[in-house]
Design a protein around this nucleic acid. Structure first.
Lengths: 110, 110
DNA sequence: GGACATAACTATACTAAAGGAAGTAGTTAC
DNA sequence: GTAACTACTTCCTTTAGTATAGTTATGTCC
């Protein structure tokens, strides 16, 4: 049997929920934040996001790539390097991150 | 022993990270979305957010209350009812949710 | 006066996701 | 041949989230 309407009243396709499904995981917004300032390599991201495990980093990158928010380019350098970059679609997350930054800077820990 | 500086280069007090720490858990943004349209009771939230477990709902509400983003008022009705409402501080999350809604409505599932 | 209902939870058992340590593959420098 | 570098993967433990049953304090129904 199909699950027909699992969501609440205003939830069929609620746009906030759609976005939440992307960014709700740990580290996701910080990966995107790093990429807002331009293309970055795996090792740069790993160093910049101190504390992230390679497992979580690569799974986040794969998830964002699947959702067409970032692109992955491999270069045949020695050793090979990989560059990640926000797509046009991914760049549309910038206002979300900016709003988060605005809130965060107003918010003194209580 | 104290953990002294776990964060990366630009991370000591990165405002995006601060906001991410609040909203990164599952359901958190949807709880806030419900409260944006005014004060709500526990049972309303539970019905509106179909699929949320009472354990997660109450832990989210307690977390948001601790962080002074929502307030909790108990009424001596029969049976007692509880109302949750965004504080002035919590209302400042509105632009974040609006940006998320804007992105979500542009984003057709791939 | 015992059964049932309601609101707002808490408790318990289980599963999925995240974290930490270590290892892998290909290549080049020493 | 050994070490180093990049970009990962694998294995195992810990934490987060799900599903559902139970609790407390009333009050109504019969």
């Amino acid at each position: 049997m199909d699950r027909v309407d699992v969501d609440g009243p205003c939830d069929q396709g609620c746009p906030i929920k759609k976005t939440a499904l992307i960014i709700e995981g740990k580290w996701t917004t910080l990966v995107i934040r790093e990429l807002l300032s331009g293309k970055k390599r795996y090792s740069h991201l790993h160093r910049a996001l101190q504390g992230i495990s390679p497992k979580v980093l690569s799974s986040r990158l794969r998830m964002l790539e699947e959702k067409k928010l970032i692109s992955r380019t491999v270069f045949a350098t020695v050793p090979v390097t990989t560059e990640y970059q926000l797509t046009e679609l991914g760049l549309k997350l910038q206002p979300v991150l900016l709003a988060m930054a605005e809130f965060g800077s107003q918010w003194q820990q209580h």
